[in-house]
């Protein structure tokens, strides 16, 4: 099986690479690239993302043909894709970090700043928080409800169609922290930094 972590200069992806390498243990071919041909021939794709919504979208767009290739992979061909953090947020139509920025429009919705209730909640939302599973998701196999995952973000994805939400977390309000729609998966938290439970989610994705 060929699994590709999309490297589009979206910031630090060493931890994503390390965790997938650990879980894959040489049983799958893991590539880290932005090469269109390699992406096309992959069985599964991970779309990481760090930094701002705008900087990630700009980086994706700066690589010729990348956005179209990803769309063909995930939307047309319906092959498994996992977005992590801003990688998930970019599924939306629009993001409001820095300036209003168009997203990939794969799952209708917006990405807006977490309401910190006038400073009552510190931002970024950093640390371990419990996930509340909202629907069965293939990547949550053997993951208990209220498991702890590691978060670092100030913006949240608000999808129009609530049926895509697979888990939420409680921080000032119920924040969407995981989505599943068919072959499309996304986590706002960082499975690559979420200890043994996080590695389980990565294994579940690899074993789909």
């Amino acid at each position: 099986m060929n699994v590709t972590i999309v490297d589009y200069q979206s910031g630090n992806i060493s931890s994503v690479i390390n965790s997938f390498t650990e879980v894959a243990k040489g049983k799958i071919n893991l590539a880290v690239t932005s090469d269109i041909k390699k992406i096309k021939s992959s069985d599964k794709i991970i779309l990481p993302g760090q930094g701002s919504f705008k900087s990630c979208v700009d980086s994706l767009n700066s690589i010729d043909g990348l956005v179209d290739t990803l769309k063909e992979f995930a939307i047309t061909n319906k092959k498994p894709l996992l977005g992590i953090c801003v990688g998930l947020q970019m599924f939306a139509d629009v993001g409001y970090e820095e300036v209003e920025t168009k997203g990939l429009s794969w799952i209708s919705g917006k990405v807006s700043k977490i309401d910190n209730q006038n400073g009552k909640f510190k931002l970024p939302h950093i640390g371990w928080n419990e996930i509340e599973i909202q629907k069965e998701s293939k990547i949550f196999k053997d993951i208990k409800n209220k498991s702890h995952m590691y978060f670092v973000h100030s913006y949240e994805f608000v999808p129009k169609d609530k049926s895509v939400i697979s888990a939420t977390t409680d921080y000032s309000s119920k924040i969407v922290c995981s989505i599943e729609r068919g072959n499309l998966f996304g986590t706002q938290f960082h499975p690559e930094k979420s200890d043994k439970e996080g590695l389980k989610i990565i294994a579940n994705f690899i074993n789909l």
């Binding site: 931890s15 590691y150 930094k193 979420s194 200890d195």
Partner: peptide, 8 residues
């Protein structure tokens, strides 16, 4: 360390 520890 980063190859063995999967916490931040």
């Amino acid at each position: 360390t980063a190859k063995e520890c999967f916490v931040p």
